[in-house]
Design a protein around this nucleic acid. Structure first.
Length: 210
DNA sequence: CACCAGGCAAGTA
DNA sequence: TACTTGCATGGT
């Protein structure tokens, strides 16, 4: 498995090149984006974040104090805006009250403990937590998403039905635990999923993994 | 018109 | 534990 996973990475990297993730100006924006992108096209997330920026509201202080209703209107284009406003509020409460609204202080915590704390926030599941850890805080944690599972299962490296932890363990036990590698690898899998390995098209003739 | 998008929580059996 | 459903906008 070690060989397969490293080989896939090499093929993806040479085919697509570096992806320069996460597309954001600062760690706080990454964390907000991680919640907004749940089951949602990134283009719509950009609109939502654009609204917050345009109104100078993309800051922990502003978003912590802002009424949930108003926050919901700003992030409307990202979809599920009522539930996402609630989730952002829950995260802002944690970030403000437990981390002093300071990502540097947040990053000092032990990764495993911080991950459990994030998972205990309503609206933050494994992918959202790991995206924050890897892309905002530079922790060596592998992010698994729907594309990752689909691609691995299409190539018979896992069975369908593997859960998040099983897939994450597969990567973390067989790859060098390195931020740069995990960053590019996940981004490349998303790129492959978006461009080629489409949901209702099991055949992907252009697949660079073959 | 149908289907999809960088999930998660809550409800049910 | 293992399924099912609601959440919602905007693009193809």
């Amino acid at each position: 498995m070690k060989k397969e996973l490293n080989s896939i990475y090499k093929k993806l990297y040479s085919f697509f090149g570096p992806q320069y993730w996460w597309p954001a100006d600062e760690p706080f924006e990454v964390m907000v984006g991680a919640i907004l992108t749940q089951n949602t096209n990134w283009q719509n997330v950009e609109r939502a974040i654009g609204n917050l920026k345009k109104n100078k509201s993309l800051s922990p202080g502003k978003m912590y104090k802002m009424p949930e209703k108003k926050l919901g209107q700003f992030i409307r284009p990202s979809g599920y805006y009522n539930i996402k406003a609630k989730r952002l509020k829950a995260f802002l409460k944690f970030f403000t009250e437990e981390c002093g609204a300071d990502f540097r202080r947040m990053a000092k915590a032990d990764t495993a403990i911080l991950r459990r704390q994030l998972l205990s926030v309503n609206g933050i599941g494994p992918e959202t937590a790991d995206s924050m850890l890897l892309y905002a805080l530079n922790k060596p944690v592998f992010v698994v998403d729907a594309y990752t599972k689909r691609i691995l299962s299409r190539h018979s490296l896992i069975k369908e039905g593997f859960d998040y932890q099983e897939v994450q363990n597969l990567f973390m036990q067989n790859l060098k635990n390195e931020v740069k590698l995990f960053n590019e690898y996940h981004a490349l899998l998303v790129k492959l999923g978006k461009d080629i390995c489409l949901k209702n098209k099991p055949r992907c003739n252009l697949c660079p993994l073959k």
